[in-house]
Amino acid sequence: HNLTITQGKLFFHYNPKLCLSEIHKMEEVSGTKGRQERNDIALKTNGDQASCENELLKFSYIRTSFDKILLRWEPYWPPDFRDLLGFMLFYKEAPYQNVTEFDGQDACGSNSWTVVDIDPPLRSNDPKSQNHPGWLMRGLKPWTQYAIFVKTLVTFSDERRTYGAKSDIIYVQTDATNPSVPLDPISVSNSSSQIILKWKPPSDPNGNITHYLVFWERQAEDSELFELDYCLKGLKLPSRTWSPPFESEDSQKHNQSEYEDSAGECCSCPKTDSQILKELEESSFRKTFEDYLHNVVFVPRKTSSGTGAEDPRPSRKRRSLGDVGNVTVAVPTVAAFPNTSSTSVPTSPEEHRPFEKVVNKESLVISGLRHFTGYRIELQACNQDTPEERCSVAAYVSARTMPEAKADDIVGPVTHEIFENNVVHLMWQEPKEPNGLIVLYEVSYRRYGDEELHLCVSRKHFALERGCRLRGLSPGNYSVRIRATSLAGNGSWTEPTYFYVTDYLDVPSNIA
């Protein structure tokens, strides 16, 4: 807008934040220059609390790290170098490059900038070799853009010569660093050979998330399962459950009422301010606690030095998902009996873990797994792929695949051998790939016309006998059925096997 004052003059007093240069501009645009008398524009009460600059400061050096910015700028000295009290560095987070010096300023003089007072450097006698002032900004957020400017702080001049310097606002972004852990990993099994893994992005990506790394490792069953005799009275049979499938998407929606109208769909109840505040506090606490764990609990591995020492970490090797089922080394339970199943799973520490690289999504279907087997899954978020990966501390989750139908069934015939004193040795093959492992066998036998009897055969007993022995049988026709019990439950009964026990007292003698 054009402003013209045809008559009258300007009068400025007691404006401590208004620089004289701005008042002189007002004289020019209003056409009143030359009308004012000496005392109409006070030299001592206008701009006496402001830094009124008329020179431009330029930054000469900028260096960044993930949490620091090192700045240096060209030296500046007023005509009387004693008038320079120091520099004021202003900075704040700036997602967009549209910041002005006066953003967030209120009537009390406060604003949204963080201000650092910096002492002037030592003055050199040689004007050509003056030290460049600077400042190291610490405690910054990774991968965050900051708006920065600097200006001088000078003393009051009796001659009211307006001098000083100020830089333009520059924008500097800190470097990326390792992201925080992925949030809320959930693993479920939808079949006997697959596990579905879902997660949420890290709360602090500290860069642009480029991919996720998912490692999985087959877990050995508890050692007590191999040692305890679950045929003993009072000892509860062990059981394991597989990871249940995901709930429906509708039930997972946030901010939804727990109660549904019987007449149909209901609208979600909005969260109160107290609920939102509580969630923010919980989120802040979780982030602080995660940072504490990362800094205190997890110790970084030592990389190899120039002395030739090897990095103890196993090298990563990509495998196809079809090879995942046989990740671990199978060892027989008892070496003397080769027909026992290889369900003991000690994992070799030198073995390469299978892994998958996930790009542009937060889910993965891990296939080719062994049925009813526990897996430990390790999830890392990465925001750099080359020249070397920059990934987060791992988040861990466990899951067990679903049982395989008929995996616990005894394959092959049940054979028998009759000894003296009416002892019958029953023999059968253990299931080759049971659900988890076989903890015991149930032997059901009966003599024709009598009630059915049951015998429990422990895992250890089966390994020693290759089956079991029935003792003290009365003469007669017998039928026997056997079924295995694994961590997933009972298998199917075998087809009945028949044998006849004679009275050993009636056996004919070869003595003449």
Rank of each mutant, 00 (worst) to 15 (best):
S486A: 14
E351P: 13
G374N: 08
P300C: 12
N326R: 12
A463M: 09
G412V: 05
V480T: 12
F246H: 15
Y375V: 09
S348T: 06
L225P: 07
G264H: 13
A394S: 09
K233Y: 13
S367L: 08
R316W: 15
K271P: 04
R459S: 13
T343V: 11
M402N: 15
N383E: 01
S486E: 00
R353P: 15
Y498R: 12
H371F: 09
Y292D: 03
G472N: 13
F285W: 02
R481N: 12
K287C: 02
L437F: 05
L473H: 02
G467K: 10
V297G: 03
E495M: 02
Y498T: 08
A309I: 08
F337Q: 06
P403L: 02
T210A: 03
S305Y: 10
D450V: 15
G322C: 12
M427E: 15
T415M: 15
V424A: 05
T347Y: 10
G374E: 15
S251Q: 09
Q252M: 13
V443A: 13
N360C: 08
E388L: 14
N295F: 02
R459P: 05
V411I: 13
A484P: 08
L453P: 05
Y441C: 01
E442P: 01
V359H: 08
S203N: 13
P245S: 11
R318W: 14
A335E: 10
N326T: 05
P354M: 12
G234K: 08
K317L: 14
S474I: 10
I482N: 00
N208P: 12
P238V: 07
R481Q: 12
S479C: 05
S320K: 14
Y396G: 06
S315C: 06
P205E: 04
E247N: 04
G489N: 06
E260K: 03
K460L: 12
R353F: 04
G308A: 10
Q275G: 04
D273M: 06
L280N: 06
L453V: 12
V480I: 15
P508V: 14
A220L: 11
D409P: 05
S344D: 10
E260N: 13
F419L: 09
I209S: 11
L379T: 06
T497N: 05
I482R: 01
Q219K: 13
D291Y: 03
E442M: 03
S458A: 10
E310V: 07
R316Q: 14
S398H: 03
R469W: 05
P300I: 12
T303Y: 08
A395P: 01
P387G: 15
G322Q: 07
E227G: 13
E221A: 01
T502L: 12
